[in-house]
Amino acid sequence: MSGTIPPAQPPPPSDPRHSWVHPLSLWLWRHNPLRRNTDRLQGWIALALLLLAPFLGLIAMFTIGDTAYRHYVATAADQRKTRHLTTAVLTHDAPRHPEPGSEEAKKTRYPATVRFTDPRGTIRTAQTDVLPGLTEDSRVEVWVDMEGGLTEPPMTAEQIRSRAMGWALLAFLAVTLAGVAAYGTAAHVLNRRNMAEWESKWAETAPRWTTSP
């Protein structure tokens, strides 16, 4: 109908097989006459994040990793001061493993009630995991805290390194994901701006194509 402006049709979507090179191609083809200012900006954002994300990720990894390592070292030192290794005796026989002497039996632990003396000299009973087949009055070593409760042994050097490395890796991944999210957000905003500009340009151009002579 004369005088009616048809709705603007957005440009065809890019081939998803090449979507992963889109930011790089925008940067390499910066002299393309069809390239918009927003395309150039998106290319710069992609390049900046590509360079900054690994650098900032390494900084975060070493910073968080070192902080975590120092924290766990201090925690382990405190644990060694407040936890004590003592001997406890079983108050009853521990369950037997179905396959005594097997590799599985060597790794299996069963809960059993033990009796021990806490750092204050009080005789206590508690439950802990022991090897299968131990008989009543068998002796086992347990770790006891200052309150007289059974606890885990102090962290070892290997555990400290493992936990610190875990936090370092999480820090690097967090920075990387933040970079990906930042690029995705910027691309979305720029795409909406492109679509708005497309609509505006079409509103100016369409009358010349749709008006009858």
Score class of each variant (00 low, 15 high):
Trp202Thr: 06
Val140Arg: 06
Arg120Glu: 06
Glu152Leu: 09
Ser14Thr: 11
Glu204Asn: 02
Ala181Leu: 11
Thr75Asn: 08
Gly3Trp: 01
Glu141Val: 11
Tyr183Phe: 08
Trp209Phe: 15
Trp44Glu: 05
Arg40Asn: 08
Gly166Arg: 02
Arg70Lys: 14
Ser200Phe: 07
Met61Pro: 01
His18Cys: 00
Glu99Ser: 08
Arg17Met: 00
Asp93Thr: 10
Ser138Asp: 10
Leu51Lys: 03
Leu28Arg: 06
Asn194Tyr: 03
Trp167Asn: 15
Pro100Ile: 05
Pro213His: 08
Ala196Glu: 09
Lys81Cys: 03
Met165Leu: 14
Val175His: 01
Arg115Ser: 02
Gly184Leu: 11
Pro23Asp: 01
Trp198His: 14
Leu51Ser: 10
Glu158Trp: 05
Trp27Cys: 15
Thr185Ser: 09
Ser162Pro: 04
Gly57Ser: 01
Pro11Gln: 11
Ala112Val: 12
Thr75Leu: 13
Leu26Met: 08
Ala46Trp: 04
Ala126Asn: 10
Ala157Gly: 01
Asp145Phe: 05
Asp66Arg: 13
Arg193Gln: 13
Pro207Arg: 07
Leu47Pro: 06
Glu197Leu: 14
Thr91Leu: 15
Leu24Gln: 00
Leu28Cys: 04
Leu26Glu: 00
Lys81Glu: 13
Gly101Cys: 12
Gln127Met: 12
Gly149Phe: 15
Arg17Gly: 04
Val89Asn: 14
Ala48Met: 10
Leu90Asp: 14
Ser102Met: 06
His84Val: 07
Gly121Tyr: 08
Pro6Glu: 09
Ala105Tyr: 02
Gln159Glu: 14
Ser14Gln: 14
Ala53Leu: 00
Ala182Met: 10
Thr86Lys: 05
Gly133His: 12
Glu158Asp: 14
Thr86Ala: 09
Thr176Met: 12
Val130Ile: 10
Trp20Tyr: 02
Leu190Ser: 02
Gly133Asn: 10
Thr82Cys: 06
Pro154Asp: 01
Ala112Arg: 11
Thr75Asp: 08
Thr91Ala: 14
Gln127Val: 14
Met1Ala: 12
Ala48Arg: 04
Asn194Glu: 11
Trp209Cys: 10
Gln159Ala: 05
Arg35Gln: 07
Pro33Thr: 05
Leu173His: 05
Ile5Glu: 13
Leu26Asn: 05
Ile123Tyr: 07
Ala182Asp: 02
His31Trp: 14
Gly3Pro: 00
Trp44Tyr: 10
Arg120Phe: 06
Pro54Glu: 06
Ile123Thr: 15
